[in-house]
């Protein structure tokens, strides 16, 4: 599903992550790592938000730099700690992203309903709690018809009911053929989510976890 070759990311000459070759197969994958290990850097690179050396190719067809628009149409990302302008509403932001990601009209309403943001989504972001902000970011992460969705710490700051909703949403979307890369400090094995593989990010690289 996702192939990474000769990946190298450094900040100001300081190496953060180096992946000579790695393939993520179909399914739901869990990426683990301590704080500062490079999980968000990896996700942002795969999402096309950070430049890097190397090649990231989706389904052997779309390369992040060679096919920037087609690739981004198929790869979504929801930030761990989103920051949005306080005076815009989730409605403004979601409508904009939905249009850019060519989301079907009914999809926005369905996601707003499933993640229960309908009560506040027309209020300015500045009035949101961290959980409301996180739900907004998650809705944006599911918009369009992606092949891969990356959710950075999707379960933090949201309540138990929302955790259950997110897990159900992931399971439902997976059944439709969408693949997931998830990062979390929380143990996904304690949720209903079925994971296909776990990866660990340490020593500035990523490898498949043994258990």
């Amino acid at each position: 599903m996702l192939e990474i070759r000769n990946f190298r990311k450094a900040y100001h000459g300081q190496l953060v992550l180096e992946i000579p070759q790695l393939t993520f197969g179909d399914g739901v994958h869990w990426l683990r790592g301590i704080n500062g290990s490079g999980k968000s850097t990896f996700f942002r690179s795969v999402a096309g938000m950070l430049p890097f050396e190397g090649e990231i190719r989706l389904e052997e067809r779309w390369e992040v730099n060679q096919n920037p628009v087609d690739y981004r149409l198929r790869v979504n990302y929801a930030e761990a700690e989103p920051l949005y302008p306080a005076y815009l509403s989730a409605f403004d932001l979601i409508s904009f992203v939905a249009k850019a990601k060519k989301a079907p009209k009914e999809q926005v309403a369905e996601l707003v309903d499933r993640l229960e943001i309908g009560d506040f989504w027309k209020q300015p972001v500045g009035t949101y709690s961290s959980g409301m902000l996180k739900k907004t970011s998650l809705v944006m992460g599911f918009l369009g018809q992606p092949r891969l969705i990356m959710l950075d710490e999707p379960l933090i700051t949201i309540d138990d009911r929302a955790v259950s909703n997110v897990c159900k949403l992931i399971a439902d979307e997976y059944k439709k053929g969408i693949h997931f890369l998830l990062s979390s400090h929380q143990d996904f094995r304690l949720t209903d989510l079925v994971l296909d593989a776990a990866y660990v990010i340490q020593d500035k690289t990523i490898r498949q976890a043994v258990n």
Partner: peptide, 28 residues
């Protein structure tokens, strides 16, 4: 704490992206 205020016009229509930066300038 400055509570963000709802805008007064066209609240049921999303703000177009080309006005995002103007909203930022006027508010911030």
């Amino acid at each position: 704490v400055r509570e963000a205020r709802n805008r007064k016009v066209a609240r049921n229509r999303p703000l177009p992206v080309w006005l995002f930066f103007f909203a930022h300038l006027f508010r911030q």
